[in-house]
Design a protein around this nucleic acid. Structure first.
Lengths: 192, 192
DNA sequence: GCTCATTATATCAATAGTTATATAGTCATG
DNA sequence: CATGACTATATAACTATTGATATAATGAGC
């Protein structure tokens, strides 16, 4: 259900489905993803339901673009969604499912698995740390955030920068967890 | 795809679909969930495909139970799954999507949202901390884990106890993140 | 004897998400 | 002028998950 509200939220300015996909590939991929094959049908459904309107606009770089903008009903439901309870995800963590059965395999294979997992977390952590470094929290204390900074278009919003910090803290904890696992698997008596 | 392997993995001893659902409600809900309406059809599909066999067994407390046990093919594919790359979940975190648009609402509403979120994390953290306290990591250093402890049936496995620690560390980081958000929203100039 | 909780299996409809494929215009490279 | 990369929209087929409902046996409390 969240995808509907993410699309409505992103249409604070007119955008096409393709534009929205670019945003998913960037800032949003930290907490959501959607394919074009999910975005296009949902946009046209939301138009049929009276949340959006669209215009066809010629493009200088390809076929005509369908640009959506949101209507009053979209605003109303967006506010309702933001006022509702925090949407807690149903945990579905594939690598933990594998971990749950790891006792079945050799100590060597177990450690290989955890090292590969740790490396993935490290990569993501490095990427997000670099990104947050571009938007120091201290900048939000001043009354006038630096309008002249071209990068600060939508990342000017404190709430959005804080979603990046979520990833940084979460990934740091997961790297520590990998180290904890490797440490205790190492202490395990050899015969198991 | 993971659900298939979770079912095959849990059938290291004969169980019914109902039994498996009980396990999801317990230890597994930390990293996966499945409804009976997903478990029953998948079990019968896995039987048709030659991974499982089942027997109908009379119950003293209700209708006949269909007890599944796994076959050789299941073992093979389980090992392949454990030897494959860590299954990284596609991030889909509803409350972060809400957070991303939180700049739209009042400071008071924002803080209310974060306090409710923090309370949920606290609850889960308390639950998992209590659970892990029952299975101290130090017990796994001894060569003979305490067989006489009736609780230590399947939680005797170090890998399974470590999946619980994953939740503890993750939730601790998320509580810290809520505090960070509350702290910085508070420092924000009043006019925004 | 009735109701309710628990045990137990099964199916259906609907929603959500993934993968593959078709179509088409523009632009750069060789 | 053919090929590939990028922009752009759209749909079909499939898999995964959720929510609702039907059925039925047992035991406890009233």
């Amino acid at each position: 259900m969240s995808l509907k509200f993410i699309l409505l939220g992103l249409l604070d300015q007119p955008r096409s489905g393709y534009d929205i996909k670019q945003i998913f590939e960037g800032t949003l991929k930290n907490f959501w993803n959607a394919e074009l094959s999910q975005i296009y049908p949902l946009l046209s459904k939301l138009e049929r339901e009276g949340y959006l309107e669209s215009d066809l606009v010629d493009s200088s770089h390809g076929p005509r673009r369908r640009i959506y903008h949101r209507l009053a009903q979209a605003e109303t439901e967006l506010f309702d969604w933001l006022a509702s309870e925090p949407d807690m995800p149903v945990a579905r963590i594939g690598y933990l499912a594998q971990m749950f059965f790891m006792e079945k395999v050799s100590p060597k294979q177990r450690c290989g698995f955890l090292h590969r997992l740790r490396e993935r977390f490290e990569q993501q952590h490095r990427f997000l740390s670099g990104l947050t470094a571009q938007y120091p929290l201290e900048d939000f204390e001043q009354n006038t955030p630096s309008q002249d900074d071209p990068q600060a278009s939508s990342e000017r919003y404190l709430a959005r920068v804080l979603t990046m910090h979520h990833g940084v803290l979460r990934l740091k904890a997961l790297i520590d967890w990998c180290d904890l696992c490797l440490c205790w698997f190492d202490r395990l008596p050899k015969n198991s």
